[in-house]
Design a protein around this nucleic acid. Structure first.
Length: 285
DNA sequence: TCTAACCTGATC
DNA sequence: GATCAGGTTAGA
C-alpha cells in the first residue's frame, strides 16, 4: 500500500505526537510481527526522540542508540489510541505509551514488521545498507547513472530499492507516463536526454503526492485514519480502459517487472534502439 | 532477471 | 473458483 508519499504522510503526523513520549513496553498480539534481531535487548521505558522516514521505512528514534523500525509493506497501518479503545481486527503489535495510550500496528496481510534495532544493527542490515538514494535528493545526473543500466525494464529499475529508494508501483507508472517512456523499455535503452524530464516529473509527482497526503487505492489510511487525495490526480494508475488525459488514447494495463502496469500506448511508445554498450577493448588513442 | 512465495480479502 | 492487490525476497 504505502510508497514514499504515504509513508512520509504518516511520519509527518506521528513525529509531533510521539516526540518526547515514553514507550513503556510492547504488547505482542501475533507472533512474528514484532522482531528483535539477535543481540538486541529491549529495556523499557524509552523516550522517543523523533520519527523519520528512510525510503519506505518509518524510523522511530529513541534516546540512546536504538530505533523502532516499521515497514508497512502492503497493508500496514499505524495509529495512536487510548488503551481502552477496543482493538481493530489484524492489530498485531502495540507499543504502550505514557498517558494510557498506545501506538498500534495493524496489518491485514501480515507482510509488514515492527522491529527494535540498534543503530548499528540497522545500518548493517541487508535491506537498509543497500538502499539507494532518496528520489527527492538525487540529481538528474545520478538518476541516469543509476537507472540507465541493464537490460531489465525501466519500470523494474525504478522499483529496485537498491537503485533508488521509495518508489513503488503507483508512482513508477505515473512518473513513466509523465516522462513519456514505455514501462517495458529496457533501462539501458532509455535515452540520456529522457532522464532530465523523468527526474523533474519524479520530484514534481512525489512532491504533489506528499502535499495531497498520498494515494488511497483501497487500504491506505494515514495515522489519523484519513485517506489520501492524490489518487484523484493519477493519470494512468487505476485508469485502465479510460482515456488518456493527454491524448485520449485508451489506457492499457500490462505486466512489467511482475507488477500490474498502466500506461498510454500513444504517449509512451516502445522504441527500438540499440542498447548503450560498455566499450570493449583498449581505449582509442 | 524472472517467478513464486509470504498472507488475507475483495473482486472478477 | 480464480485472480489480483500499494512490497520484498529466496530461489530457479
Amino acid at each position: 500500500m504505502p510508497e514514499l508519499p504515504e509513508v512520509e504522510t504518516v511520519v509527518r503526523l506521528l513525529d509531533p505526537r510521539l516526540r518526547g513520549r515514553r514507550i513503556e513496553g510492547v504488547r505482542e498480539l501475533f507472533t512474528g510481527v514484532w522482531r528483535q534481531p539477535a543481540g538486541t535487548v529491549g529495556s523499557w521505558p524509552q523516550t522517543v526522540r523523533s520519527v523519520r522516514r528512510r525510503a519506505k521505512l518509518i524510523l522511530i528514534e529513541l534516546e540512546g542508540d536504538q530505533l523502532v523500525v516499521v515497514h508497512l509493506r502492503m497493508t500496514g497501518h499505524l495509529s495512536i489510541h487510548a488503551r481502552s479503545v477496543p482493538l481493530e481486527k489484524h492489530t498485531h503489535v502495540c507499543l504502550q505509551l505514557d498517558h494510557d495510550e498506545e501506538l498500534r500496528f495493524r496489518d491485514q496481510r501480515r507482510f509488514g514488521s515492527v522491529s527494535l534495532e540498534s543503530a548499528a544493527s540497522l545500518a548493517a542490515s541487508r535491506f537498509y545498507s543497500t538502499l539507494g538514494p532518496e528520489p527527492l535528493e538525487i540529481s538528474a545526473t545520478e538518476l541516469a547513472a543509476r537507472l540507465q543500466v541493464g537490460r531489465g525494464s525501466i519500470k523494474g529499475a525504478l522499483l529496485d530499492q537498491r537503485r533508488i529508494a521509495g518508489i513503488g508501483n503507483i508512482y513508477a507508472d505515473e512518473i513513466l507516463h509523465a516522462g513519456r517512456v514505455h514501462p517495458a523499455q529496457p533501462a539501458n535503452t532509455v535515452l540520456s536526454a529522457e532522464f532530465g524530464p523523468l527526474h523533474q516529473h519524479m520530484q514534481r509527482i512525489l512532491g504533489s503526492a506528499i502535499r495531497g497526503g498520498g494515494s488511497t487505492i483501497r487500504d491506505y489510511r494515514n495515522a489519523d485514519g484519513a485517506e489520501g487525495t492524490y489518487q484523484s490526480r493519477h493519470l494512468v494508475f487505476g485508469r485502465t480502459g479510460g482515456p488518456c488525459t493527454t491524448c485520449g488514447t485508451t489506457i492499457r494495463k500490462i505486466r512489467v517487472a511482475g507488477r500490474g502496469t498502466h500506461f498510454c500506448p500513444a504517449c509512451q511508445p516502445k522504441r527500438r534502439r540499440h542498447p548503450r554498450r560498455k566499450r570493449r577493448g583498449p581505449a582509442p588513442a
